[in-house]
Amino acid sequence: MEKFTKITSIATPFPRVNVDTDIIIPAKHLKSIKRTGFAAGAFESVRYDNDGNLIKDNVFDGPKYEGAQILIAGDNFGCGSSREHAPWAIGEMGYRCIIAPSFADIFAGNCIKNGILTVSLPQEDVDALVIAAEAGNDITVDLDEQTVTCGNAQYSFDFNPTHKDMLMEGLDEIGRTLKSSGAISDFETKQKLMTPWLYREG
């Protein structure tokens, strides 16, 4: 996983509220058995009309925001399904960071596992960043310092320290957890005595 420390980029403004994972990647595009290939169908209802024609000037395809690594989003972003295809698609589109007033729990967890930083800021700060994004201004997100900087404005954000380590180090979480194999085995020994019906033979 690519490490996340600090990025500076223009940002795509997409401040719609309650953007669900079906908007991010509709179910019909979930049929790949790989982790890639989801960008083409991402945000389909925002990018294409019902006849499948690309909508002119949509924020994701126009030249204005080309190369943006930051997405400025609306409240409760990523609600709905647990599909990790949503952050896979967003990552494939080139985004490394999403800034919104709030995120749905499962989606936020899935982002971390794919090296995408989710930053929660108060609505008024997000509103200010939307204006900055629309003006084509650069935004800097520094995970180590936990700050978002845009021109003279600087915003601090909270972030879980465990998740911060994971993103900054680009760690394999399974490898880390397997270091606790002994504790897991001990737990199983104890649980097997307490609730033996949860274990089957073989």
């Binding site: 647990s82 599909r83 990790e84 499962i106 967890g109 899935n110 399974i174």
Partner: peptide
């Protein structure tokens, strides 16, 4: 509900 990375985990 969990994502695919968590399924693997």
């Amino acid at each position: 509900g969990i994502g695919t990375s968590e399924v693997e985990h």
